[in-house]
Design a binder for these strands. Structure first.
Lengths: 234, 234
DNA sequence: TACCTTGTTGAACCGTGGTTCAACCCGCCG
DNA sequence: CGGCGGGTTGAACCACGGTTCAACAAGGTA
């Protein structure tokens, strides 16, 4: 196994540390909810003290915003990937659903439900909401295209999307790794069920051919040496 | 309009008061979440002081358990009602979905998502979980019957139910009275979408004929003079 | 070696929120 | 009228959790 390169610069080490904290926080939030999770607890899970967390994040809320933003970015990457696939609308939707379930339950361990913003305020909230809205717009785009093409039955776009998102997001409440079904199996099942619910009469179901990649898997991206993350702004 | 009879006994007044608190608490929890809602806030909404709340409930958790229990009871009443209807499985499922959406978003204003128990412990949690499991069993019963009868496509019962419940429960996050769609419209749309997703091939969709009643509407039941509610146990 | 930067700690601060409880009020009854 | 029960209040208690910060350590550089 190839070892990841050792962090070289201060900024890199900073980012690596933040990601470690992100993982610990996400897991804890997932397990116990944002409010029931304390900074001391997250710090312990990340192998540091609570005071140290403030070197990396301005506060608890900033940490939450960071976690949510990360999730939202991955969902948007997923949506972009789906957009590039040469698929019919129902197959696209299928892929998106599978991919979304994977992001929440496998890609970023401990992802929060999509995308609870009740505990966020100000700039952090705006950013997360903007990313979330972009993703939902992509979803509605797929739905709309499918309806226009006669593949999907005509129905209220917003409500249709909300039903789909609800089913997927609720997986956060009950899905546990190592359970009866893997995240991918859940994703496939959900996609099957939800896409069928939208098919136009006499239309045969089309599924994506290949496997949907997991956005958010470890060893993700190379960050530039950026130390200007506004969530750290004081 | 006929005025409800004035409460006569101590027990009745006690219960009436508890229901008032229930409404205030549910709304607040719905709006801001359990953790972000304080006892002082609930008390104010109910027209009393925080200290007074403890005359009616042992504590914050007991109040939450009471709210959740009330929701669960209504869902079980809905399920029982659906069971009595002379309907085919898909129509039953349709009715259940509509009814569930109504319970959450209209019957008991401010109902919490179904049925968050993370914040509950001990006896209170057990009771809520038991009621919840009973409802989910009823749902899976309808699904199973439909599959056995060849009305619904064969699929994993548990995952199928979870997708449905997810979609419905998530309405709590976004549904607001006075919005574009009424709770009933949302319920009908969701039922249409979710039931279609399960129909067996070549099977025509069957819908319930009448209107699904709202379990949880005001002027509900006459309570016996019971003062033994364990959620008040000290 | 001295200084600066980065990173970490542990103790302390302090606001918040759940909870308690003595005191008070009101109505009813003997 | 006095006593009792039910209901309510407001002040106080106290634990908890977010946050701060002085002190310290380590590494690098002039």
């Amino acid at each position: 196994m190839v070892q990841p390169a050792a962090p070289e610069s201060t900024a890199e080490r900073f980012d690596v540390r933040r990601r470690e904290i992100l993982l610990s926080a996400s897991r804890a939030y997932r397990e116990r909810g944002f409010h029931a999770t304390g900074m001391r607890e997250i710090a312990q899970a990340a192998g540091m003290t609570a005071g140290n967390l403030y070197h990396y994040f301005a506060g608890k809320e900033a940490l939450l915003a960071f976690c949510q933003e990360e999730s939202a970015r991955r969902l948007n990457e997923l949506a972009a990937w789906v957009e590039e696939q040469p698929l019919r609308a129902d197959a696209r939707l299928h892929a998106l659903i599978v991919g979304h379930v994977l992001v929440l339950n496998e890609g970023l361990p401990g992802s929060l439900a999509h995308l609870e913003v009740e505990s966020l305020e100000g700039e952090g909230r705006r950013r997360v909401v903007a990313l979330r809205d972009r993703y939902e717009e992509a979803l509605r785009g797929i739905l709309g295209d499918g309806m226009d093409a006669g593949v999907l039955r005509r129905a209220d776009l917003k409500l249709t999307a909300l039903a789909i998102l609800g089913a997927i997001n609720w997986t956060v409440k009950w899905f546990r790794p190592g359970g009866k079904s893997s995240a991918r199996e859940v994703g496939e099942h959900f996609a099957e069920q939800l896409v069928r619910g939208l098919l136009a009469p006499e239309m045969e179901l089309a599924r994506p051919a290949g496997e949907v990649p997991i956005f958010g898997a470890t060893a993700r991206r190379e960050h530039g040496a950026t130390h200007t993350d506004p969530s750290r702004t004081r």
